[in-house]
Write a protein that binds this DNA or RNA. Structure first.
Lengths: 350, 350
DNA sequence: CTGTTAGCGCATTCAT
DNA sequence: ATGAATGCGCTAACAG
């Protein structure tokens, strides 16, 4: 029996909701679809003349390219997946903004996922992004589950790790040493004459950056105050908030009353503690000194202002974006690891 | 001349980088690709038996579905585009986190864009997302350029506007009235006995929410203090920061020395002003009272604590996500506009 | 510089 | 419940 293919296809055929396609533009401009494609993706490979005709046709038809089709045909999605512990943590938000600022103008769009500081969730989120075939990955931290590392490697696209340091990055690295930052802080405090520093903060199991800072405290203590017992006052769950800092302050003073300076894992609890000191009538830095990490805007505005460590948050995002772009465009990146460093901000609180 | 099609195609043919496809899974499981497709998207339409075989094959082959192909074939991208003024503004970050929490578990991924509070950039960002054909849009605010509104309408997908109010939303609305919030604040302050309220803040041309709050101040003034001149102390550019609040405080006191309470456009400048008052020795609320907007965590921790208006930031994101899901799944949404309201937080600063 | 041809991987339609 | 055929819209490869 003959096959009335076209008839069969005509009825009940897939709705072409995508309205106007490249073919329509081509027809309008009197060229082939391929020429339209070229005119849009590499305008210089087409004559002034035809380019103009195509541009007019694009406007006339109100053409919107379909990136899914482009992706399928070219095997490039022009997307980057960014995975961070928490979106509402303003510190990472800055980084994402920097990343987006760099990538959007180049036509790359950002998929965003968050992990709540849980390594298993990080792996799950990465996995969930795989089907989108992003052209690049941006992740926070340098420690991940085996599964997460494998996924990132198998993706065979550039990966930027960030916000921490390692000698063996998966691919690219834009970060700094949280450990050294805290060591620097302890040394500074020792030089200032403090004798019994404590470390306090929220260090959740998956928050390796905070753990590094704690380790930095330990290292520096054995170097600056050999033999002295460590005073580590940490909670391993809960949000990183001002309020948590206030609570930590109280319990710390009960647990380690001899403390003369507290290094907090983040500016948030540090600021919370500083504000609590005012309420409790504790003189800072006279009675108790306080140091933070991150240099949030609040740190400089508090009174006394907060001694802390500044990190080029937004710059991390911008730099990561630039490295990704380079790498995604096939250029080789000579400096695969970039140390953006940190800066001690000596202020009044310590 | 004969056409050696296959031969020609064989050489230099497109690299199939996408590795393992549904066909490979099908082969492994001894079924057709369609059955695999069904087993993955609607498991209940396939026998236990075959489902299991397919699941095994998926694992064995390490299959990762290609969403671009799925998108192209089904005309559903399973993505949502979220466009916010600023990512690093923690207040919107919370909303995005709420949105993501709702959408990710349902398989929808989030494209993120930011506008820097510029309507023209909002339009540009929306346009840049069109080619991705998101299944839904989430935007901040209810005022947009004509072009932006047209783009959103032409997309023919659910759109949630948020963080403000209007009687004529594009589609769905999850917000509250910034104007009423500020009116409520002024009324409260009037009841508390304040006589000469000022409004201060950063109101950038594209920040219609802040402008609404200023309008709310004007309305309430003419109702609560008829005949009294308005004291509006606004800068129209710059970042919304603590520091800006400190500067505004100083200039405001020069411009309107009779002010007894300042309502700020946001908690950030309000908090900055509050902290500046401590430095300058201005008694709050005795000498000057201060009110904010947003109920940032800092508001409750400051001393004196900041009187402000709380908004269910994260809840806006969650609700928007739920409405989008419903609408994207083709269910009709009965309540297209949801007023999440606001809550006056009477604290010590006013 | 431009056109022709084929196929990216999947879901939809229809048949069985 | 499963299979076969078709096309979604675009770009890679090649020819001219």
């Amino acid at each position: 029996m003959t096959k009335p293919i076209r008839l069969r296809a005509k009825r009940g055929t897939r709705r072409k909701l995508s309205s106007v396609t490249m073919m329509d533009v081509a027809a309008q401009a009197g060229v082939s679809a391929q020429t339209v494609s070229r005119a849009l993706s590499a305008p210089e490979t087409v004559t002034q003349e035809t380019r103009k005709r195509i541009e007019d046709a694009v406007r006339a038809t109100n053409y919107v390219p379909n990136f899914a089709a482009s992706h399928l045909a070219s095997n490039r999605s022009r997307t980057v997946a960014a995975i961070i512990p928490s979106i509402s943590s303003s510190i990472f938000a800055e980084t994402i903004q920097g990343l987006n600022e760099t990538l959007l103008p180049k036509g790359y769009q950002l998929f965003l996922g968050h992990t709540d500081y849980r390594p298993d969730r990080e792996e799950a989120v990465i996995k969930s992004f795989m089907g989108r075939k992003p052209d690049g990955f941006f992740v926070i931290g340098t420690r991940h589950t085996r599964g997460a590392v494998n996924l990132l490697k198998q993706a065979r696209v550039p990966v930027v790790e960030s916000w921490d340091w390692t000698s063996r990055p998966i691919d690219l690295l834009v970060g700094f040493s949280n450990r050294m930052a805290t060591e620097t802080m302890v040394s500074y405090l020792a030089n200032r004459g403090y004798q019994r520093p404590s470390f306090a903060g929220i260090v959740r199991p998956g928050d390796y950056r905070a753990a590094e800072r704690r380790d930095g405290y330990e290292n520096a203590m054995s170097r600056c105050f050999p033999g002295q017992p460590l005073r580590i006052h940490i909670v391993s769950d809960g949000e990183v908030t001002l309020h948590a800092g206030a609570e930590l302050l109280t319990s710390l003073r009960a647990a380690h009353p001899d403390t003369d300076v507290v290094i907090f894992s983040s500016d948030l609890p540090a600021s919370g503690a500083l504000l609590a000191c005012r309420r409790l009538g504790i003189d800072v830095p006279g009675e108790l000194a306080i140091a933070g990490f991150g240099d949030y805007e609040l740190a400089a505005e508090l009174q006394p202002s907060l001694t802390t460590v500044a990190v080029p948050t937004k710059e991390i995002g911008r730099l990561a974006g630039r490295l990704l772009l380079k790498s995604m465009q096939g250029e080789s990146v000579d400096e695969k690891s970039v140390d953006v460093g940190f800066e001690l901000k000596a202020r009044e609180s310590a």
